[in-house]
Amino acid sequence: MPRQVDHDLRRRQIAQAVWRLATRGGLEHVTLRQVATEAEVSARLLQYYFGTRDRLLLGALEILNADAEQRAGQRLAELGEAPGMRALVRGVLWELLPLDEERRTRHLVYAAYFIPFVTDPALASAARDSPRALEDLVSGLLDQGRQSGEVPPEVDTEAESAFLVAGAIGLQTSVLLGQHSPEQAVELIEHRLDGVFAPSLG
């Protein structure tokens, strides 16, 4: 009887090979053959699962994003039943910081995608057209905070969410480069949240 293949597991095996190559030397010049060798699969099998190089890079990123979303959900669930909007916003922003080895590795992979997304037209289009899910999530949490009185009514939730996410992403880079420590990054996030969740001016 032929052995049953776990296709999701095989796709993950290939995606993990992409991630390892990304953290070791970037993705600009990574080839399908290199990924196949790293994943210990044939080039034919790799093409069966992903097809082209662009589809491989995007597919590996989708798996990484799904993992990140699942882990973030677990950490937010650990905050308890009613953690408050500030704690939830903080939790979302912390997922953008390399605060432990898991998140550090993930953000190194994300960093490796930056140059291909900027220079490759097909990948750039995929990145540009992707929804601003994090900004929308933070904006929605701030809106809920405004309704509950945790966020002052004069706060522009859309502008603040864009600034908070952009700031956390900037801190992500500076922590990876050693310009800020994880603790300093957390303190800066808290400083900005102090302003967003400040008492109303009215």
Rank of each mutant, 00 (worst) to 15 (best):
M1L: 12
M1P: 08
P2F: 09
R3K: 13
L9M: 03
R11V: 01
R12A: 15
I14M: 14
Q16P: 01
W19Y: 09
W19A: 01
W19I: 00
W19G: 01
T23N: 06
G26T: 05
L32H: 04
T37I: 08
T37A: 12
E40V: 06
V41Y: 05
S42Q: 10
A43K: 13
L46V: 09
Y49N: 06
F50A: 09
F50G: 03
T52V: 05
D54Q: 12
R55D: 15
L56K: 06
L56S: 08
L57F: 09
L58S: 08
E62Y: 02
A72L: 15
Q74C: 01
R75A: 14
E81M: 08
A82D: 14
A82P: 00
A87F: 04
A87W: 03
G91V: 01
V92R: 00
L97I: 07
D100F: 09
E102G: 05
R103E: 07
R104H: 06
T105F: 13
R106V: 08
H107A: 06
F114L: 15
P121Y: 07
A124D: 03
G140I: 01
G140R: 10
D143V: 08
D143K: 02
Q144R: 13
R146T: 12
Q147I: 02
P152K: 09
P152S: 15
P153F: 01
T157N: 11
E160M: 13
E160V: 15
E160N: 04
G167E: 10
S174E: 14
P182D: 12
Q184W: 07
V186N: 03
L188W: 07
I189R: 06
E190C: 04
H191Q: 12
H191E: 11
V196D: 00
A198D: 02
P199V: 01
S200W: 03
